[in-house]
Design a protein around this nucleic acid. Structure first.
Lengths: 135, 135
DNA sequence: CTGCACCTTCCCGCCATGGGAAGATCAAGC
DNA sequence: GCTTGATCTTCCCATGGCGGGAAGGTGCAG
């Protein structure tokens, strides 16, 4: 099938499919006119990649996951390792974001949000460095 | 002061200071030799920016926040608006990450992680598309 | 005067795309 | 056969917020 059908079946934009081919994740055939010809197996891989990306795996991870996926002699430990590392990173990101969230939600609820200039948000952002005079 | 002292006082790497100047967030003076001369007010702004960035505000937000910070006739509502929008985005990101976290942590605990190929993680990544035959 | 620390600008790379241009190709209608 | 429009191709540029590193000027101490 041509790329438009692959787009419809894999639920990924054509740009992404181009990119995934560019970085070697898929290798669709080519018609004599140069058009990509996606086999079902290509579409299948694209679906896999779309799901993996939706779970936040990097392209690098996807490359390894895909090779493990196709390796029937794989050890599930290898897959689990990657997933665990990724999970740890996600947890770290969540923690960082929650710290921001905590601070910000507190500041936002504290700020009057009216026409007056007083603002605890800006007060929080202001550094504790003694202002001093210019040069 | 020269950039090295500004680095020490603002607790930001020189690259960042260059960048912030490049995008017009700060405008340090220049010595005749071309060296940047950071006033206390520049260092102060850098501290503000570092704190704002640490809370996840974009450079675009920082630009507005900084101008509000310096505008003594500001309305705190303007600041609150920006912070609220940012907070909403953070919350969205957290939600997205937590969805990944939920899925992944479940998958990781389910996976045996041994030498056998069976792997619920890969099974989850596999698309539900009927595999079919090649072309 | 030598050496070294410091400063400058400039350009490339990251990551995973999105936008859009320029040009080939295909399929349908006339 | 010709035109039109949809589809396809490759290519380059932009995003955000930096980091790395090269090439070259400057300041200062010994």
């Amino acid at each position: 099938m041509n790329i438009k059908d692959a787009v419809g079946r894999a639920n990924l934009p054509a740009k992404i499919i181009h990119y995934y081919e560019d970085v070697g994740l898929i290798r669709p055939l080519r018609d004599p006119n140069g058009y990509r010809v996606s086999r079902d197996s290509d579409v299948h891989k694209l679906g896999f990649l779309g799901r993996a990306r939706a779970l936040g795996f990097t392209i690098k991870d996807c490359r390894v996951l895909l090779s493990l996926y196709e390796d029937k002699a794989r050890a599930s430990a290898d897959v689990k390792d990657i997933a665990q590392r990724h999970l740890d990173q996600i947890t770290q990101k969540i923690n960082a974001l929650q710290a921001m969230q905590d601070t910000l939600s507190h500041l936002v609820t504290t700020c009057h949000g009216d026409t007056r200039p007083e603002c605890p948000i800006l007060a929080d952002l202001a550094p504790a460095i003694p202002s001093g005079q210019n040069r």
